[in-house]
Design a protein around this nucleic acid. Structure first.
Lengths: 155, 155
DNA sequence: TATTATTATTTGTATATACAAACATTAAAC
DNA sequence: GTTTAATGTTTGTATATACAAATAATAATA
């Protein structure tokens, strides 16, 4: 339940484990993802990036010239989603695109490269938060387990 | 990578466990949720419902007159999202809303009640699919684990 | 070489979701 | 009893994401 005071919302969330749908993986997986997303969003807010922009940008910086298709694979998003993310980041002068023939290459701008250390800090902060809330071992094990199941789901 | 043939896309997805971000819970949780969502979407497509509409509708049928706030708690979505879902389902003549004072009650229509057995079938199909891909034990354990972590994240 | 199939990317359109703010109603406090 | 706080819901606006179709370029094949 949302309790709102002076236009701020403090969240009293029902426990996932008590929900009518707690046994349903659709429900669990989505609710969990939204919460992790929120945590990540907070970590990257200070440099004004959403988590997906941040991850895409880190990849572009670490692999300058990377193609959208490759980004889609790595991030497990559709090509169209990648195009949309890139468009947004081009507006914000964080990446540039060059197209030759059917191939597009994405490069970081100097502004993006300058931002890189701060991005690393945000990532660290996110991990630190995760670990302090979930525990290091628990987090690692869960990520591994989820990846394993993800792989099963995509074949 | 997406391979498209005659306007159909067959997906060769990079393994989550091989991704640059495989250790990151933001990434894992989201990618996993998207895949589970897809599986669920397929199960409910035959009765033309998205998973979130389906879950909301099942709750409304099982608890006629339930209030949006309660739905938000149970589904762990924000009140505004619930409002939007209800609007959509009102258009489709699956629920009706009555408002008295500040309280709103949501009721299923006869059409919705008629659909209920089929919804149960879709849910069953979804579970069956999950189990056949992930294994019954694995699925159960994962849902429990994810719920536990969800709870930790929301306090 | 001409035609066909494949590949990489983008566009049009639609969805679910959220935050912040706005309403409207009820409860509390003074 | 009037003002203030709390509550339940909805709206305005913005986001990420996806599917299907469209482009455009290259590769394969006949």
């Amino acid at each position: 339940m949302y309790i709102q005071t002076k236009c701020f919302y403090f969240v009293f969330v029902m426990k996932a484990s008590g929900s009518r749908f707690s046994k349903c993986l659709y429900f669990s997986a989505n609710a969990f993802a939204r919460k992790v997303e929120k945590l990540a969003t907070n970590s990257w807010k200070k440099i004004n990036l959403t988590p997906s922009h941040a991850y895409l940008l880190m990849t572009v910086i670490e692999e300058p010239g990377v193609q959208p298709g490759k980004l889609a694979e790595e991030m497990q998003l559709t090509p169209s989603t990648i195009t949309r993310l890139i468009e947004k980041m081009e507006e914000n002068k964080l990446v540039v695109r060059t197209t030759e023939g059917k191939v597009t290459n994405v490069y970081p701008t100097p502004k993006a490269n300058q931002l890189y250390p701060q991005m690393k800090d945000c990532l660290d902060e996110f991990y630190t938060n995760c670990i302090s809330i979930l525990g290091a071992e628990e987090m690692k094990r869960t990520a591994q387990n989820i990846n394993k199941l993800s792989d099963k789901l995509s074949s």
